[in-house]
Design a protein around this nucleic acid. Structure first.
Lengths: 234, 234
DNA sequence: TGAAATAGCGTATGGATTGAACAGTTTCGG
DNA sequence: CCGAAACTGTTCAATCCATACGCTATTTCA
């Protein structure tokens, strides 16, 4: 029965198997999850491995499997705890959605490795569901159907993830400027030869320098305007 | 000089180091990339490993490193070729954007493993850039700035990726129905206890059964309407 | 007090990416 | 025409990673 549940579901809601006999656990799931977050923060997503966590906590690798059933389970727990709870949202669906997206982008900026966590399925953990819950509450005032609200939420969530991902990859490396120039030098002749007029213009005019700080507001404004059109049409 | 270029850039544009001496290569990069796509199609993204490709082609694992510098490089090449070229877009930015998004979703549906390819940086490969190029051309008629056009493109692209990803994970498993019920049974009491009114309603009313086929059109309509609002305001 | 349950450990397997050294093959330079 | 340079694929190896199995030691319930 409990076996059919997705990894991490039970543990994230605090359902531990009741211990009856045997030695006391040297560790706790919480400790393991915290260590995972620590490693993610300091060395990125791929540094979150059972081996490293075990070594850091002074136990053998396989001792981990007394606490989590698989690495996937661990990742779900780490993700939920690292993302944390959503903020209080202001009144008004538009302001609320803006705050919600900004908060998500902030989380991803603080912990970029969260962007690397593969999406395994619909959210089922407490904190993730709390994010959904607060946004659905804010969207209630639009008078749209639950189905439409979910569509809007998906749109906003996807956008936040996408934008954060973009920001990270563009701001990732210090040598990005150097490398971008090298790429341009390599690419431009081929773009001209290969009939890519728009991209050629983009690269040679350096219009792409505009900075992407506005892109968050830009995309968000488009989505919100689109939702507004839907609301008005009802 | 060529070392500073991102992995796969040179190779994807057909720049092979000119061979002058030594034995003739037993393989070609193209052969390797095709095999990678084959494995991805038949066994998913994680089946694309240098070991398996090498074994399938009858050479040792490390022989691969004569052709590609790293697995990352291979993945870039595989991704570009597997995604292929964009379709011809119809007249009118709205129709074009719709066709563009649909085409992307189709690609992701045909080869779901493309969704698993980690995004490494701005697109630099021929096919990927072609997708950008055609959409930018279609957006030219809107009269918006290049910056705004890029913002729109980012929005559409992110949405397509996001939607395809959602479709896959929901339609992924046959036992999804079974599992969803088990999850519901586990979750609902906790949602009630934990003060998640919207989600409780969602789960108990089975409103989430509505089907996500419309979600593509829904989200797309929101984005396009939002862009339209921007155009009108100019 | 003894038996059952359970924790951590050692050992082991199978897989991945990548490096170093080496031997064979081809072709250019003279 | 021949040696040397360049480049090939190979073996061997190191270093990670996630798991599985079985053992021993510990704790607690009956």
């Amino acid at each position: 029965m409990s076996d059919e549940l997705p990894p991490g579901l039970a543990l994230s809601w605090g359902v531990h198997p009741v211990q009856r006999r045997g030695p006391k656990p040297a560790l706790s799931v919480e400790q393991i999850v915290d260590t995972g977050i620590e490693f993610g923060d300091s060395q990125g997503f791929e540094a979150i491995s059972l081996q490293k966590i075990a070594a850091h906590l002074g136990v053998s690798t396989n001792a981990m499997y007394r606490y989590v059933r698989s690495k996937d389970e661990l990742i779900v727990l780490v993700q939920d705890k690292a993302f944390g709870l959503p903020p209080e949202l202001p009144e008004g669906w538009r302001e609320a959605a803006t705050a919600w997206v900004h908060a998500q982008v902030e989380r991803f900026t603080e912990r970029p490795w969260l962007l690397d966590v593969p999406i395994r399925g619909a959210p089922v953990t407490p904190n993730s569901l709390r994010w959904v819950e607060v946004m659905l509450q804010a969207l209630e005032s639009t008078g749209l159907s639950m189905h439409d609200n979910l569509g809007c939420l998906l749109l906003l969530n996807g956008f936040a993830h996408n934008y954060a991902s973009l920001v990270r990859q563009l701001g990732a490396s210090d040598d990005m400027a150097v490398q971008a120039e090298a790429v341009g030098r390599f690419l431009v002749p081929r773009l001209i030869d290969g009939d890519y007029p728009m991209l050629t213009a983009l690269y040679t005019n350096q219009e792409y320098e505009d900075g992407i700080d506005d892109d968050l507001e830009f995309g968000l404004a488009r989505i919100l305007d689109g939702i507004q059109v839907l609301i008005d049409s009802h």
